[in-house]
Amino acid sequence: MNEGIASVATSPVLPVVRTRPANAWTSRAWNALLWGAIVLFLVNVGLMIAAVGVNSFATRWFGGWLPQGWTPSWYADAWKEFQLASILWVTVEVVLSVVLLSLLIGVPAAYTLARREFPGKRALLLLFLLPLMVPPITYGIPLATVLYQTHLGGTLTGVILANLIPAAPFVILVMTPFIEQIDPNLESAARVFGANTLRTFVHVLVPLLGPGILAAALLVLVRTIALFELTFLTAGPDSQTLVVALYYAVFAAGVRAPQSVDAMAMIYMAVTLVWLLIALRFVNPTQLVSRVREHPQH
């Protein structure tokens, strides 16, 4: 950090860092432009969500600002028509299994990656990073081919396995820096004071890892609910998650009333947002996307 300042102070770029009289007008215009862009974006996204909400309660809505009448019956309709009860159950099964298994696979791996240096570590990190850099469709299609050949395609197991591919590396990338910042001396100290492995694990590691594991679990949960492509490629008729069912409903929009599709969209949104709100209590929003911050090059 100090070298940073020193190099700025003595570097040859100094002449270009010239004093410029602060032009209040351009800077204010620039600010207004930035805020305008962000407000425009948020307002439009907000109205977009509101439009789906309004339509899901509409009897008929052909043009005009608001629908001709209001009814809650589309929700009951969507529930029956799309068999939402079973789809929700499948979603819960998939998401919970993915969260548990990805923690079970990911946390021990993250522990080793954080605490040990060994030959091949960089190659291993690359192996865990690649699935996050390659888009799901690219590896999803060969994966679906393999799964269908092993008769796992179209089953719940297949969907869970497919969803684990981005989830497990994500847990590793979230947990590795978290474990790194836990002082290894705490583990040694516990052992010096005579704690056996089990006690060290239960009384030292678990409480320290707890917040990190919770954060990783919530992040994986929110991401898995919304992960479309892999489930879409591997799911059969009775292993669809909510997001895939929603896709098929929108895809066949001509067949069903748009209000019914929107009611289903609202149910999906409610499920996602509830978990997002819970997650936001424990994690920083940037964690949902900044999975590559601890890239090996850093």
Binding site: V52, Y247, N284
Partner: peptide, 26 residues
Amino acid sequence: TALLVVPITLGTVLIAEGMLTYFGPK
């Protein structure tokens, strides 16, 4: 940041459905 996380978590399918309603000709 909390608001901007919403469109990411809703995912592309819901955004598509919302856009069909909101950006559509009517």
